[in-house]
Measured scan of single mutants.
Amino acid sequence: KRPVSAMFIFSEEKRRQLQEERPELSESELTRLLARMWNDLSEKKKAKYKAREAALKAQSER
């Protein structure tokens, strides 16, 4: 099983909040919005998710 990506971790963290704030969005619209949010995120903020990705990857390799 492959470890999850930093973007996937970000998306899972933000998805529920966005669904509550924007219930009119379809699943595909929500996914596009999350992708745009990820792309607009600064490298400094992405680092938090990339660190979690690395930790999960290291854990799965044990």
Rank of each mutant, 00 (worst) to 15 (best):
K1M: 14
K1G: 10
K1L: 12
K1T: 11
R2L: 04
P3V: 13
P3M: 13
S5Y: 06
S5W: 02
A6C: 04
A6M: 02
M7V: 11
M7S: 11
F8G: 15
F8T: 11
E12M: 09
E12F: 03
E12Y: 03
E13L: 03
E13Y: 03
K14V: 10
R15I: 04
R15C: 04
R16I: 08
R16V: 12
Q17E: 14
Q17W: 08
E20H: 09
E21Y: 03
P23F: 02
E24I: 01
E24V: 02
E24P: 02
L25W: 02
L25Q: 01
L25K: 02
E27Y: 08
E27M: 02
S28A: 11
E29T: 06
L30I: 05
L30G: 03
L30T: 07
R32K: 15
R32D: 11
R32T: 14
R32N: 06
L33V: 10
L33W: 03
L33R: 06
L34V: 13
A35I: 14
A35R: 14
A35G: 10
A35S: 11
R36S: 14
M37I: 04
M37S: 04
M37T: 04
W38H: 00
W38M: 00
W38S: 01
N39T: 12
N39H: 08
D40H: 03
L41P: 00
S42W: 00
S42T: 10
K44T: 13
K44L: 08
K45L: 07
K45E: 15
K45A: 12
K46R: 10
K46L: 02
A47T: 07
A47S: 12
A47K: 13
K48H: 04
K48F: 10
K48D: 15
Y49D: 01
Y49E: 01
Y49G: 00
Y49W: 13
K50Y: 10
A51N: 10
A51R: 13
R52P: 03
R52L: 08
E53R: 02
E53C: 09
A54F: 05
A54V: 14
A55E: 15
A55P: 07
A55N: 07
A55F: 15
L56F: 10
L56E: 12
K57S: 14
K57P: 09
A58G: 14
A58I: 15
Q59G: 11
Q59L: 11
Q59S: 12
Q59R: 13
Q59T: 13
Q59P: 11
S60T: 12
S60N: 11
E61Q: 08
R62C: 05
R62H: 11
R62N: 04
R62L: 09
